Simulated assay, not measured.
Amino acid sequence: MFQKIAAILIGSLLISIGINGFLVPHHLLDGGITGIALILHYYFNFPTGLAMFLLSIPLFIYAWFYKRTYFFNSFLGLIATSIMIDWLTPLRTQFLLSIYISVILGGAIIGIGVGIMLRYKTSTGGTDLLAQFISDSISVNIGVIILIIDGLILTAGFNMLGINAFLFSSVNICIIGIITSKIAKPNIFLE
C-alpha cells in the first residue's frame, strides 16, 4: 500500500511538472482527459486540474457500478494529479525553454510519471479508464484505443493550436507513450 501511495504522489508530481513547466508555456496538448482539460484552459482559462477532475466524474461513476477495481485503482491518482496540476501552475513561467526542448522534456517527464503509476497498478483514470472499458468489451488492444482517443482529442484542438503546435503536440504524445511503455511493466494496466 505504501508503494502504491508513493507511486501516486511521485507520478502525479512528475505529470504536473511536465504539463505546467513544458506543455502549457507553448500551448501544447497531451492526450486523453488531460488534453481536453488543456483545451478548456487555453480557450476559457479554466483550471486544468479541476477540468480533469470534473471531466472524469462520469467515467468514475461508471467504474463504481461496473468495474469497482478500476475505480479504486485510479480515483486517488486522479485526485492527486488534479490537485498538483493546479497547485503547480507557477511552474508555467519558470523554465521557458525552446519548444523543441520542452516537447522532449515534457513528454519524458509525463511519461515517467504515468509509467510509475501504471507500474504500481494505479493511474489518473480519465480516457485510460475509458480505453480499458472499451478494450474489455470489444477485445482490441488498449494501446490502440488510447492512440485513437488521443488522436481525436488532438484533432479537436487543431484549430486552436495551429499546425506547429499540433505537430509538436503529436510528437509529445508519442514520447509520452514510448516512455510510459518502457517504465510500466507489460500487461499490468489496472489488473
Rank of each mutant, 00 (worst) to 15 (best):
I112P: 01
G113W: 00
G113I: 00
G113T: 04
G113Y: 02
V114E: 05
V114F: 06
V114Q: 06
G115V: 02
G115E: 08
G115P: 00
I116M: 03
I116V: 10
I116A: 11
M117Y: 03
L118T: 01
L118C: 01
L118A: 01
L118E: 01
L118F: 13
L118I: 06
R119K: 15
R119T: 09
R119A: 09
R119G: 09
Y120E: 06
Y120R: 08
K121P: 08
K121R: 15
T122P: 11
T122W: 04
T122F: 08
T122V: 03
S123K: 00
S123D: 04
S123H: 01
S123E: 01
S123N: 02
T124L: 07
T124M: 10
T124A: 13
T124V: 13
G125V: 00
G125S: 06
G126K: 04
T127D: 10
D128C: 03
D128W: 00
L129H: 01
L129F: 01
L130W: 02
L130D: 06
L130S: 08
L130Y: 03
L130E: 05
A131S: 14
A131I: 09
A131H: 08
A131V: 03
A131F: 10
A131L: 05
Q132R: 15
Q132W: 09
Q132L: 15
F133I: 08
F133V: 06
I134C: 03
I134Q: 11
I134G: 08
I134M: 08
D136A: 12
D136Y: 10
S137L: 07
S137E: 14
S137M: 11
I138E: 13
I138G: 13
S139Y: 15
S139H: 15
S139W: 10
S139V: 02
V140M: 14
V140G: 07
N141Q: 13
N141C: 04
N141D: 15
